[in-house]
């Protein structure tokens, strides 16, 4: 029951935040100096003032701002985000829809990789606090945290792709002979193309999360109940994995939720480097082309996804934390 109420409360705060996201996206686009329309029109020598007015009317840019916002919001409710300015004039949502799965796939794989590597690494470093292993991982984590992801991507491409020729360095699948491959070969081809992007997008989060795991674990290992568990004569493995880790993992759920914006933001960089047709690359092309409906649609969709990711993390936290799950107040 307590959990149910908690979740209801969480979901109720979702609405205002969602509206806030749409409002800010709208304002960013409309209050920026230089009207989106003029960017297109200024370069067209045949543009007469009348044509410009007609174009403005066509996009509804002649109406008051709040009307424009409501119109846009109404469209958003049915995923009608307008049409792209690009020559194909396709609906914005269609463009985003076909690219979303790739970006989500890579991000989910990256989160998986982060969890699988960072947590054991952090635990191992905490258990061997101040040992040689701990110091080496600390230094490595600091370096990984400071390294620009796109540079690491370049180095990996240079070494594994160009120098050794082990891995493909661009696109989602091979261009030559892809059609003739069997199903399994296609899957393998995809996997080979995904290794570098997933690795690169996981790097920053990996460093961050392993550091958090380490400090969270160190904190828990100092607690009295861990001493109690040891005093009972439990094997060290059990003390660490059964007693300490479960509590140390709790704050990590929040950290993982908070790292979602960074992960999705990273898509812009690795998708443009590895030529992966995802949402990040779409954002980049829309900025370059000043394709304003596409830009706005992208911004909103990506932020809403982030919001949902954060909510999922929150709910995961609620499910994992018995204090919230049962509603029992515990004095800290």
């Amino acid at each position: 029951m307590a959990l149910f109420l908690y979740l209801i409360k969480k979901i109720l705060t979702l609405g205002p935040t969602f509206l806030g996201i749409t409002l800010i996206s709208f304002m960013v686009m409309h209050l920026a100096p230089g009207e989106p329309m003029s960017l297109q029109a200024d370069f067209n020598p045949k543009m007469t003032p009348e044509m410009r007015e007609r174009l403005r009317a066509q996009y509804g840019l002649d109406r008051p701002l709040h009307i424009q916002y409501l119109q846009w919001l109404k469209g958003l409710a049915v995923l009608d985000l307008g049409r792209s300015f690009s020559p194909d004039r396709r609906p914005v949502w269609d463009k985003i829809k076909e690219r979303l799965p790739v970006t989500l796939l890579i991000n989910v794989l990256a989160i998986g990789l982060i969890l699988v590597v960072a947590v054991p690494l952090g635990v191992a470093a905490a258990v061997r606090h101040n040992s040689f292993f701990d110091q080496v991982t600390t230094v490595l984590v600091f370096i990984a945290y400071a390294a620009p992801a796109f540079w690491v991507a370049l180095l990996l491409m240079l070494y594994l792709g160009v120098h050794l020729g082990w891995l493909p360095i661009s696109g989602l699948h091979s261009l030559m002979g892809y059609e003739q491959m069997s199903g399994w070969e296609k899957l393998l081809d995809w996997c080979r193309h995904l290794i570098l992007p997933v690795l690169v997008s996981a790097l920053g989060g990996l460093a961050g999360l392993s550091r958090y795991t380490r400090s969270s674990m160190l904190e828990v290992l100092r607690q009295d109940y861990v001493t109690t568990a040891r005093a009972k004569g439990l094997p060290e493995r059990k003390v660490i994995y059964r007693h300490a880790l479960r509590n140390a993992l709790l704050p990590l759920i929040t950290i993982l939720g908070l790292s979602i914006p960074g992960l999705i933001g990273g898509s812009v960089i690795f998708e443009s480097i590895f030529a992966i047709p995802g949402v990040g690359q779409l954002m980049w092309t829309s900025v370059m082309a000043r394709d304003y409906p596409l830009l706005m649609g992208n911004l909103v969709i990506v932020s809403v996804l982030t919001l949902l990711g954060n909510q999922l993390a929150d709910m995961g936290y609620a499910l994992a934390d018995p204090r919230i799950r049962t509603g029992v107040q515990v004095e800290d």
Binding site: S25, M296, S303, V304
Partner: peptide, 12 residues
């Protein structure tokens, strides 16, 4: 905080 910073920056 819901906006991935780089998307927001690019939009501006």
């Amino acid at each position: 905080l819901c906006f991935p910073t780089i998307f927001l920056i690019m939009a501006v």
